[in-house]
Design a protein around this nucleic acid. Structure first.
Lengths: 122, 122
DNA sequence: CGCATATGTTTACACCTGTAATCTGAAATG
DNA sequence: CATTTCAGATTACAGGTGTAAACATATGCG
């Protein structure tokens, strides 16, 4: 099941910390997004229906926690973009950014050590 | 102006070859997507309204060509994903893929030479 | 125990998107 | 010149999305 842009903002909040009450989540994302409380409630409900999160009763309210894992979501999104725009090649994306945006020294070093690291694996 | 998924398929066809008539484009993307001719026509019109493509009269028909550049589109999409999911760090994306999917020897080599290359720039 | 209040649920609604049929107008053809 | 034909424009329509109000319900307080 696909997660929309707005829904993913709520997921981010839950991935950052869980479980959280609706109130917590409203406080976490509402101001930054300019969302009213009912908006966040709707998103929580849609995520519940999609099975992306779960709700556990806690007294008068619910505590929400993610069921969909962040790594899985990130992977799906990234893979889809990579396939659509870069022929599935990570290197093509790196090539794009190495040209269009100057990568910082740190970024370069990090990528280099990542490459060395995996290159030394069996 | 945002370009939808379906619209971007049409753009891909135009980026691959331009200008093309509506008929050409239908032939290029229709079968693969399972789209009827009117569907592609609608997408062309929406892209025209969005200013993403232009149409030049050619006898009884039009020849379409992209106005939005592929590199710009690719950059927007990639940047948005990188910002949303990787804190804007290309290295974080590389890290993700180096773990979740085994990168091919070729990919690794390519990334390495890209890194060496830009590291030798001023 | 009745009422106010806080939570969650249902309903709303406009806009976008995917998908396509129908309409219109101009060009080709007889 | 009347008619057919074909390309493009207009209209359609269901489902998803962003955004939110209204409603229902349980719970704590007086």
């Amino acid at each position: 099941m696909r997660i929309s842009e707005a829904e993913s903002i709520v997921m981010q909040a839950l991935w950052a910390r869980a479980p959280q009450s609706a109130e917590d989540i409203v406080a976490a994302v509402g101001p930054a997004q300019g969302w009213q409380e009912p908006t966040v409630k709707t998103l929580l409900n849609r995520l519940l229906n999609k099975g992306a999160i779960a709700a556990d009763r806690d007294g008068r309210r619910y505590l929400y926690r993610p069921l969909l894992e962040r790594a899985d979501y990130v992977h799906e999104e990234s893979k889809s973009l990579l396939d659509r725009l870069y022929g599935g090649q990570v290197s093509a994306l790196v090539a794009h950014f190495s040209r269009s945006e100057r990568l910082s020294k740190q970024e370069i070093d990090e990528i280099r050590s990542l490459i060395e690291e995996i290159d030394n694996e069996p």
